[in-house]
Amino acid sequence: MQSRIYNKGIYTVIELRGELDESCAAGVRRQLDEELAGKQVANNVLFDMRGVPFMDSTGIGMLLGRYKLLKQAGKNMFITNVGPQLDRVLNTVGIYTIMRKVSV
């Protein structure tokens, strides 16, 4: 799985690419935390899931973990470009109650 982080408008955008499951979750987590620590992060962090065709509950755990860290740092977390499989998983878990789905 690949990731790219950049600032755009009011957001720091985290773009993920690839399937998100147990085989890559730990690596993604480490990579994002390292990159975010060395960056000027906006108050609003947006996960762009356009390049993620599949995610399971391991991915949910990764997103929730980032949510907790960002919240501690006083940041808001949003999610966008969610495909049908991700949407069903995220809805099942009720994740949109804590990170809003936005269209940008």
């Binding site: 987590r29 399971d56 509950s57 391991t58 949910i60 755990g61 990764m62 929730l64 973990g65 069903r88 998983v89 099942t92 878990v93």
Partner: peptide
């Protein structure tokens, strides 16, 4: 502690 969501079986059951 490993950021597990605890939703694996719930997803299996729902899907």
């Amino acid at each position: 502690d490993e950021e597990r969501s605890g939703m694996g079986f719930t997803i299996m059951r729902t899907f």
